[in-house]
Each structure stands twice: as C-alpha cells, then as structure tokens.
Amino acid sequence: MQILPTLQAFGTLLAIALATGCGPAHPSPATPGGAGEAKPLVVGTEAAYPPFESVEPNGDIVGLDVDLVRALGERLGRPVTVRNMQFDALIPELQAGRIDIVASGMSRLPERALKVDFSRPYARIIMSILLSTTRAADVKSAADLDKPGVVIAVQRGTSGEVKAKAAFSKAEIRPFDNQVDASKEVAAGRAHAFVYDMVSVRKLAEKEPDKLRVLGETLGSEEYCMAFAKGSALVDPANAFLDDAAKPDGLLSRLVAKWKPDAESAPADAK
C-alpha cells in the first residue's frame, strides 16, 4: 500500500486528504489494476481523538478508525480519502454528500439516527465526567452538577454534549470546538466539568493531576458506529465487513492490540 498525501483547501479548514492505492509499483493510486476508475471512498473524521484518529507530525491522519476504514476500502476495491474536519461538521457533510462515511468515534444516538444511517457498532466506550479539582472540589456525584451556576464544558456536536444537556439541565452547558479547548476550560477552573469518553478523560486527568480528576460515577456506555447518508448503499457492505472484523482474531482485535484504545471491541452479536 502506498500513501500519497496531498493538501487541499477545504472551506476555511486545511483538510488533509490521504489517498491510498493498491497498485504496488504504480505511482498513480487512483486505478487499481488499471481496470476502470474506482471512485474513492471519502471518509470524514475529526482527527483530534487519539487513538481513534489523530494527525501525525508529518500530516498523515492515522488511528484505529482510519485503519478500519482503509480495510473496508480494500474490501470494496475503492481507494480511501480521509478528510479532517470539525466534529460538528461531520453529519452536515454526510448530508451534503461531500463525504461517504463518517469514521470518527461517533456514538449511535437516537437523534443522530433520524438524520443518518449507522453501521453495526465496532467499539464501546463509557461517557465520563472530568472535574476541576478547584471549582468542583466538593462534587461527589453527577447529581451535584445539576445545579444553576454550574458550568459544564463540552465539545460541540459530540454525544458528551447531548448527554450533558440531558443530565445537567439546570447547569450552563458551554460548547467548544474541540476537546482540548473544553478540557482546558476545566483545568483553568473556568468550568466545573467536561463530559467526554472515559479513556480520553483519564488521559487528560493524568496530564494535570493537580487540576483535574475523574468522577467515579459515569453517564453510561455508548457504541461507536460508522455513519452514512440516509439510504446509502454502503451500509450493508460495511456491516458485512464489520461482522467479519468483529470475529475472534478478526481485524478489530488486531486493531485494538495495535492502537490500545482501551475500549473493548463490541461483541459480534451486538446491534
């Protein structure tokens, strides 16, 4: 497999598109075996969520989701182009037809399922609460946060935002563009808490243990799925692919070993 990084302007974002090809010796990645142009599978992701997706120092987008979707592309005989964008832009971009697949650690939520089709789940995460050691010093349970005057930082458009709105209706929910900005808000004591997945929350707390801690109580588990435009023909092949990948010793277990997301891969019978 060879990787050809290209830069292209994408709105105001600098999107990094990676096209992969199957031809071992050909410099042009677009035509596998030279037989007909295979339309690239355009994948949208917010590459600021390691180890699922992140940007390497050289600009490459890598991670568990990226490997997974590359393998799907290989199976479908289509090259894969990965586009980096803000998380809250993913579903509108899917609806606009500019991307074919969202592979970005996206949880299946009922309100999202009204707008897009989801694949079967491939990972499960736990929604957790990161607390400020100063501003939320006396918070002992999630209920302590459901009060006027409490500020909850979230990443705009994430399931953490959806869960926070539902669980803390009396608090002020303050959305930010990315997880770093939101978590810094808590570290600075400007917000009481940040609602995000447990693995990320733990990593953030480890970095600044004097400023951040993780609440023992969680907001329940969620399942990561790929997302597609409503009625997309890709849903069935993707499900078949994920069924195989979720088998014991299948691709998912290898990817979990490689990327160590610390999120158990969903059992093959989930859905």
Binding site: D88, I91, P92, Q95, R112, K115, R156, G157, E161, P175
Partner: peptide, 8 residues
C-alpha cells in the same frame, strides 16, 4: 453553531 450542531 450550537443550533446547527444540535439539529444538523
């Protein structure tokens, strides 16, 4: 922005 993210 919040409205767009909430309603897609």
């Amino acid at each position: 922005k919040n409205l767009s993210a909430a309603t897609y």
